[in-house]
Design a protein around this nucleic acid. Structure first.
Lengths: 344, 344
DNA sequence: CGCTAAATATACAACGTTATAAATGCTCTC
DNA sequence: GAGAGCATTTATAACGTTGTATATTTAGCG
C-alpha cells in the first residue's frame, strides 16, 4: 500500500541503497541519479518508515517530555518552548503527564512506560525530591529540569532561584516596602532543596542585606502552588491581623490567587500592598492589576535542555562527559502590582 | 547492551516466540512457562523495542496531536485531556505545534512532518478554514477537532456552538440584561462556518426569541482571540459611547481581556455590565470577578476523539464506516461576572 | 593508452519484533 | 491404549531501513 524504498528504487531504476543514500544526503551520489530518485520519490509520494529506520539506526527522532500536567500554565509554556526547541533539531516530542504521582514519576525515570520509543527524556519532577536522588540512574540520555533535586548524576537545567528571589524581594524594598510577606513556603521543614526553600532563602538574604529582621509571621505556607492555595494563604494572612505592605508570592499562580483575595478584602494593590510573583506566565500581563514577576528564562531553559539532551544522545560511549548543571539568566519584570505603569 | 527477546528466551529456556506470546498475552501459554518467562524478563530488565514492534506490526502505539500552540490555555487543557484519554488506550501522544501557520497545518494533514511515526492524527486547525475542506484527504486514521471545517471526509468531534452560544446569551437575558454586546466576531464576512460565526448566530437566535432587535453596533470584531484583542475591543466599545449592560465574549481569553478593560474604565462587573465567556478554562474560576462561562465539554471531546481515532486505527480495510460528526454536551457555568455568588 | 585511485553504485546481512505454519505434547474417547 | 483433537511450543520468514563489503564506473596521470 504505502510505497517503500523498493518501489522507489524500481521506479528510478537504481538499487534501494542508492535511494537510501539520496535520502540521507550521502556525499557520493551523481546529481543525475539523485534527480531520478527524487522524482521517483515525488511521484510515488514515498515517506520513509520511521519505525524501520528507528530499528536499524537505534534512533527514533523522538524525545520524551515528562511533566506533571499541561493544564498547569507553567508546564504548558515549558512544553511549548521545548517543542519549539526540539523542532530545530528535527526531533518530535512525546509528552507524558505524571499527574504529580510519585509512582508515575519513578516509572518515567526508570524508562518504563511508553518512553521506550524515545531517544531520551526531559524530566520535570513534582513529587520526587532530594531524598529520591538515588533513584535517578537513567540508562538513557536524560536531562533533569526544575529545582527539586540537585547533585544527581545527570545533566540538569534550572534557574537561579536564590538570587532571582533575592532580586524580587529587593524590587519590593526599592519601592519602599518594609513589611514583606511571602506566600508558598513549604510546610515540611525537613525537606531541603526545592524551589520554595531556595526562594525563601533569597528573600531572607535580601532582607538581611537591607538590615530588616525576618518576621516568621510573614512567611506563609501554601502547597501545592495553585490559585486556591494562594487565595487561602492570603485570606489567612489578612485575618491574622499582621501588618504588611509587600508580598512576594513564590509563583505567579499563587500571586494571582492572592491578588484575588486581596481584592475581595478591599486591599488596594499596589497602594496598600505591592505584589510580585515568579515565573512570568503569560497571564501575569493581563491580570488586574497586571502582575510583576520574575522571568526565569524559560525559553533559554528549553533550548539549553534540548541541546544538552541532543549532545548526550550523540555522545559516543567512551567519552563520558561529566554531568552539567546549567542555570538560566533571570530578569525582573515590573508591572502594575508593584507600581509600574509601563505595559511590558 | 539492552537485552532483547533472544536474551530472555535463552534465560527462560524457551523460544523467542514464546516470549513474544507471553508479552502479548496470547491465550495458550502454560502458567508455569509464563512464570519462567516473566521472571527472566524481570531479571534482565527487558523492555520491548517499540521500533521493532512498530516495524513488524505496523503500529507504533503513538498518536499525533496537532494544535496551534500549547501556550494558549485552551489547547493546553485540550492536550492535557487528550493525553489522559489516550493513556486509557495505552497510546502515547506526540504533540506537534502548527503555530497557526497555514503551511504547517497543511503539512500536518498531508502526513508530512514527523507524524509518520504515529498511528493516527488528531488535528485542531486554526488557519485552515471551510475553503480548505478539500485539502483534508488524509491517507491515515484521522479525527478533526474544532469548528473551522465541516462536511469533510473524516470523523469530526466538535461542540454545539450555536445552541450553547444561544444558552449563554439567554443566561444574560435571564438576569435582566437587554443591551448585550458581543466581542470576537470575525472581520471577514466571506468565511462562513467557524466558531465566531456559529456563536454569533446563537446570540442572534437568543435575541430573536426574546424579541430583542440586533444592534450591529454591539457586535464587535476581535481576532485572534487573545487577551489583548479582547481588551482592545472593549476599550473601543466603551469609547464608542454605545450603551450596553451585558457582554458575551466568544471565548474566555477575550473575556478576561475585556474584564481588564472594564476594570480600567471603572465599569463594575456584574453591576453595570454582566459578562460571560466561552470555554471554561481553569482561569475563569480565579479572575476578579470570577468569570461565568460555557463549558463545552472538553473532557468529553477528548475522550470521544481518541475513541474514534482508535476505532479508525483498528478498522479493517473493507468495512469503511462513513465519517461521524459528534457534538459534545455543553453546560452554562454561572459565576460572579453574571451575578452568581456560588463558588463553582 | 593503460594503470591507479577515486567516485559511484550494488548485494546482502543485519536491527528486534510478530505472523505463519508446522511440530510436538497432552487429554480424551471408545 | 491408539487415534483424534486440541493445547502448547517452535523454526523461520517477513517488516523497511541502514551499514559493510564489494563491485563497477569514471577520472587523472604519466
Amino acid at each position: 500500500m504505502t510505497p517503500t524504498m523498493h518501489d522507489v528504487a524500481r521506479v528510478a531504476g537504481v538499487s534501494i541503497k542508492t535511494v537510501s543514500n539520496v535520502i540521507n544526503d550521502f556525499p557520493h551520489v551523481r546529481p543525475s541519479t539523485r534527480m531520478r530518485v527524487l522524482s521517483a520519490i515525488e511521484e510515488l509520494g514515498y515517506r520513509p518508515n520511521l519505525s524501520a529506520r528507528g530499528l536499524r539506526s537505534g534512533r527514533t527522532g523522538v524525545i520524551g517530555l515528562a511533566v506533571p500536567e499541561l493544564r498547569q500554565n507553567y508546564f504548558a509554556e515549558l512544553a511549548d518552548a521545548i517543542i519549539r526547541a526540539a523542532e530545530k533539531h528535527d526531533l518530535g516530542v512525546l509528552v507524558e503527564q505524571t499527574s504529580g504521582d510519585r509512582e508515575r514519576e519513578i516509572a518515567a525515570v526508570t524508562g518504563a512506560g511508553r518512553l521506550r520509543l524515545t531517544d531520551g527524556l526531559l524530566f520535570s519532577p513534582e513529587r520526587l525530591g532530594q531524598d529520591d536522588r538515588d533513584l535517578i540512574q537513567p540508562k538513557f540520555p536524560f536531562v533533569l529540569l526544575g529545582e527539586r533535586i540537585f547533585g544527581g548524576p545527570t545533566d540538569h537545567v534550572t534557574m537561579h532561584n536564590v538570587s532571582s528571589a533575592q532580586a524580587a524581594t529587593e524590587h519590593l524594598l526599592e519601592i519602599g516596602r518594609r513589611r514583606i510577606a511571602i506566600i508558598g513556603a513549604h510546610p515540611d521543614q525537613r525537606e531541603e532543596i526545592r524551589s520554595a526553600d531556595l526562594r525563601v532563602r533569597g528573600y531572607k538574604r535580601a532582607l538581611g542585606a537591607a538590615g530588616i529582621p525576618v518576621d516568621p509571621q510573614l512567611i506563609r505556607v501554601a502547597a501545592p502552588w495553585h490559585r486556591e492555595n494562594g487565595a487561602e494563604a492570603m485570606r489567612d494572612l489578612i485575618a491574622s491581623g499582621v501588618a504588611f505592605d509587600g508580598l512576594f508570592a513564590l509563583n505567579d499562580t499563587l500571586a494571582l490567587g492572592a491578588l484575588r483575595a486581596l481584592g475581595d478584602a478591599g486591599v488596594r494593590v499596589p497602594d496598600d500592598v505591592a505584589v510580585i510573583g515568579f515565573d512570568d506566565i503569560d497571564e501575569a500581563r493581563y491580570s488586574i492589576p497586571s502582575l510583576s514577576s520574575v522571568d526565569p528564562g524559560r525559553q533559554e531553559i528549553a533550548e539549553t535542555a534540548v541541546e544538552l539532551l541532543v549532545e548526550r544522545i550523540n555522545e559516543k560511549d567512551g567519552e563520558a562527559i561529566p554531568p552539567l548543571l546549567v542555570k538560566s539568566e533571570f530578569r525582573i519584570v515590573a508591572r502594575e502590582s508593584t507600581g509600574s505603569t509601563g505595559s511590558s
